[in-house]
Nucleic acid binder design. Structure first.
Lengths: 265, 265
DNA sequence: CGGTACAGTGAACGCCGTTCACAGTCAACC
DNA sequence: GGTTGACTGTGAACGGCGTTCACTGTACCG
């Protein structure tokens, strides 16, 4: 080992050792593990959206030929599933138990939305994929706990979870990058939109004309929060009504109901 | 070239006239109009889903080479937009005005959902596209009228519309064809799912284990109706508070509908 | 009758996901 | 210590996708 440098010089028939890179570096091959692939896929999606996630682009970024990815991932569908789970892992499910159940649900929904919108296009994947990954389960549990604590019957608890979950996903899905949102964001186009709405025939679209620009709002935060509040308000009346919740046929009973069980452990 | 088929150049009498199709029919070339293309696209989507809508397949079905489609449609994106509008045209927006506004909203939502689910994959397009086509406007008007009649303030009316619209779209989007739904539909897999849920560590997923199979329901109709009821119930409380608020015009901070919720991050 | 606008053709381009025979490398085992 | 075998990455290919473009035939119009 001490004869490294000079030995190579005098040993005529031997290999050109100086061609061999430093031992450490040679050993530290990039190694391309599955976690590597998934992580890089996440940054690709985060940077350029879910459509930019192509096996070829991903392979290039990893300094590898496309086919190599298939040693670590069965196919693109599985890759997306893995990415999905990675995203859901970013949600923090710990909520202060002393908060009212309504607040707990809202906080969770806001967090979920934030994470989803930080990864444009991810919500679209979630909608069509199976929500039974480990982190999906944690999410479900986090939502179900406060809903159950609210005193909703079992079946209604499940329904309420679906409702809040679907609402949040659906909202995050129409992400700010969509043509839709981008147009409303731009103030000039927005003014045009309002003018267009006002110019509509008032006999065919009376309400649309009357409300003018109040219909397409550009404040996503307000829209999400307002929808969530309305939704939770609906859940609250269901909770108050006790076990007589979901079959509720358009009954307009007054809510002179007993105070809710404010009992949170 | 002069001896093409029915050129009828010099030899008038000996032409094989029976080769010439009935004048009307010959003239009635399929003609491949834009409406034709869009209509065929709709049937393709209806039959095999939105992913099966490929320019090449569509062209083949129309007995035409792919490039020919581009004489009638700028690109695939525009084709999808046209298809979208065609689908929305199928919704019947006429609702009995004597019904309570809550019922009118529900009826509309149900109709919208039905049409959307009759064209698998369409909801996904709607989410990311602009809702300003002529039929979109009619839909918006139909929803806004009862909401406005409910006595909601202007801004809240717009928010309520977004809420109901997004909810319906989001629901229709996770269509019965998704892996997700199909799994829950199959009773055997469903039993496995329940067993799996019950087998989870009860310390980490207490509510999930306790609720068992009540979380993932296979009855889409019930889920949609229940969510819609809850949502409208929330709107009702907002309407009650809204009429009051509109009456005294005070700076109301304690109404139920949309308090500016703080984002806990 | 000649000109012209235009719908449809055929072929190509550059992407995509995926497969497969092959080569290089490392670790374990005789 | 050399052999073997498992495994990762390579290079090239396949078929399908959306889209473009020079072209051809035809129907209509002056």
């Amino acid at each position: 080992m001490a004869q490294r440098r000079p030995a190579a010089a005098e040993d005529a028939g031997s290999r050109p050792l100086w061609f061999i890179p430093p031992a450490g570096e040679r050993h530290r091959r990039p190694a391309l593990t599955r976690e590597h692939v998934v992580a890089e896929a996440l940054t690709v999606i985060g940077a350029d959206g879910v459509d930019a996630l192509t096996m070829r682009a991903l392979a290039t970024r990893l300094g590898v030929v496309p086919g190599a990815l298939y040693r670590h991932v069965r196919n693109k569908e599985q890759l997306r599933d893995l990415v999905l789970d990675g995203v859901l892992a970013e949600v923090d499910y710990e909520v202060d138990h002393r908060l009212a159940w309504t607040e707990r649900v809202k906080v969770l929904a806001h967090r979920l939305r934030t994470v989803l919108e930080n990864h444009p296009g991810i919500a679209g994947l979630l909608k069509t994929r199976d929500p039974l990954g480990p982190h999906s389960l944690a999410l479900a549990e986090a939502f179900l706990a406060p809903l159950h604590a609210a005193g909703l019957p079992e079946r209604e608890t499940g329904l309420a979870f679906s409702l809040v979950y679907d609402y949040t996903l659906g909202f995050a899905l129409s992400s700010p990058n969509s043509v839709n949102e981008q147009r409303v964001q731009d103030t000039e186009t927005r003014n045009k939109l309002h003018a267009f709405l006002r110019s509509l025939p008032a006999d065919r679209f009376p309400t649309l004309v009357a409300l003018g620009g109040h219909v397409w709002l550009n404040n996503r935060d307000e829209r999400f929060a307002a929808g969530l509040d309305t939704l939770v308000a609906g859940l609250e009346t269901a909770a108050r009504a006790g076990t007589v919740a979901a079959g509720n046929r358009s009954a307009d009973q007054n809510r002179a109901a007993p105070p809710p069980t404010h009992h949170t452990r």
